[in-house]
Simulated scan of single mutants.
Amino acid sequence: MNPDSRNCPPSPGKVPPARRIRRVVTGLSLLGFGALLVPQALVDPSGPGFHDAAVHHPDALLISGLLLLASALLTFPAIGGILHEARDRGALMADIAALFAGLGALGHAAIGAITLVLRALAGGDPAQMRAVEERFIADVPVGVVGLVLLTSFGIGIALLAWAAWRAGILGLWGPVVVTGVVVAHTVLPGDLPPAVPALALGLVTTVFGWLGVRVVRLSDGAWDGPPSGSAPATSRGAATVQP
């Protein structure tokens, strides 16, 4: 066996399986990161407080925390997919969007971990456990960091959608829908019925899920082809979408 054969490039027309798997994972992540937040919004029992939720709905609290962690995990390959597609047109916007969306994913991961930890409040003295929860919520640095991270998620997903539109892989309807959802989430009160945020997240899932299905259905040549905007639309086939 030639020791240098490991470094030889693949034969023309042959796509390494790892590259194809990466594309499929990216597409599924674009579909999944928002889809997981829909049931999370519906089952999250922490509205009245983590202690009451831990006592009366421990299983729902567990599911909510795990869904947040899973969504955060899928957000990063989803971001990578937009960066890959917007390598020319929309590249700067995609870079900025990746920063904000990454911070937002960290925020979701942090909330998911905190949710799992605070499930343990059900095992202690109710008065003491409520005092622990109140001190945690009232901590100013924790509140500031949490606000920055969660606000970043909304900004990030809106900019990702605009970057996808700028790259020519998404119609104008996509960023308009996502931006509308983010603005509505910012201005509307936070004590809405769970079905309202679930519906809003469903709209976000529709946009990024459309992109995810598109990525999965792309040919290997289109996925690995020239960056967006660097070649005529016909050279990428399905990679270019007309609004």
Rank of each mutant, 00 (worst) to 15 (best):
I157L: 13
V142Q: 10
S46Y: 01
G237A: 10
G47Y: 10
D59S: 08
A167V: 01
R19P: 00
G237N: 06
G65R: 02
A184P: 02
V140N: 02
G143Y: 06
T240R: 09
S152A: 15
V176P: 02
F208C: 10
G202M: 15
L61S: 10
A78V: 07
A222W: 04
R119A: 05
L92F: 11
S46L: 01
G190D: 13
A195Q: 04
L211S: 11
H57Y: 08
P194Y: 08
G229K: 05
L211F: 10
L99Y: 10
N7E: 11
G65N: 01
A97G: 11
G65M: 00
T240M: 04
R217D: 02
R119Y: 08
P193E: 03
P197Q: 11
P9M: 09
R23L: 07
F100N: 04
P16W: 07
G27N: 06
W165N: 15
I21H: 05
V215F: 03
A138Y: 02
W223E: 05
V241K: 11
P45E: 10
N2V: 02
A53H: 08
V24W: 04
G202V: 15
G104S: 07
T186A: 15
L28V: 14
G212T: 12
L67D: 03
P193K: 01
G221L: 11
P9C: 08
A70E: 04
R119D: 14
Q242G: 07
L74R: 00
V196L: 10
S152P: 07
I82K: 00
A78H: 06
D125L: 12
A164T: 01
A127M: 09
V132E: 11
V176Y: 14
G171C: 13
G34N: 15
L74V: 02
Q242F: 09
G123W: 12
L203M: 15
V187N: 04
A35K: 07
V177N: 03
V177E: 01
R217W: 04
G171P: 01
P227Y: 05
D220A: 13
V25R: 03
G124R: 12
S230W: 06
L69R: 02
T75C: 13
A233R: 13
V145L: 15
R19F: 07
D95G: 14
A131V: 06
A109F: 14
E133D: 05
A167T: 03
A60W: 06
